[in-house]
Amino acid sequence: MKVMLEFLGLALLAAVLSGNLCGAIGFYVQRLRITTLSFSVAHAALAGASIGLILNFDPVYSAMIVAVASALILGMIFARIEYGRELISMAVFSASSAVAIFAIYMSNVRVLATASIAVVLWGSLLAITVEKLILLLLTLFMFILYIIAYRIQIDSMLYDVKMAEAEGVNVQMHMLIMLFFAGLIISSSLRLTGGFLVFTLLYNPVAASFQISRKAHLQLLASSILGAASASFGLLVSYTLDWPVGATIAIVSSIILLSAYMMKVLVEAFRRRCLSRP
């Protein structure tokens, strides 16, 4: 029982960290309008994890290598082209999904419910280790350090990328760093949610935060908190009801998004009613 609780505590901590990081990077990729790019990076991570299965390599590390490499390559290509970015992203997404499915087919583990496949596709509680937790902590530390160090430059890009570039901010470098972190965070969170559902943690919290506040710093804060809440609450529900962890996290984050939207609609209706009173 004690071992089980310790294990759950570890998983819960990993969920909070993953959700927090995904919520924060989701905010930045949305504001910098590189959402489709991060979508491709997420699928590249899935392909990387699946390749890890064939090579008998830890899927998290192979996902990290492929995700970060694809993020940097795509970032450099995008800096040189103006139109057709979405099409390139979709091509990478399709190719990555195909590679992932082929890699799973070619791997020795043919049953989709086995633990190693579950880690890659649906996420697994069993996959959280102290080593992976340290990896998440290190990623969080590096990300916070970067955001604080370049706060004014990042803020300038969030306000208006074109103006920031025209004034001499190194927009290309910051976009690449953001994509690098997106690759790192997505691949670190893959164990929890699985490759197909990792974007629910990337996009649902930020979409919910946009319903809650219009101020950028509050949106960032809300997105991080909601990401952490979705992941940790989803994990607890999954443990209690014995549901697949990734899918449960996706459902919880969707419920949070729907609640935030409903709350916004109600608040606006109430405000309009108050204003219309004589």
């Binding site: 004014i152 430059q153 803020d155 300038s156 306000y159 920031a164 004034e167 001499g168 901010v169 190194n170 219009r214 101020k215 950028a216």
Partner: peptide, 18 residues
Amino acid sequence: FEAYTVRHVIRLGFAPYK
């Protein structure tokens, strides 16, 4: 809904020098 204050928007002009 853009919530950046005018002061902050002007401040951002110094970003590349920092």
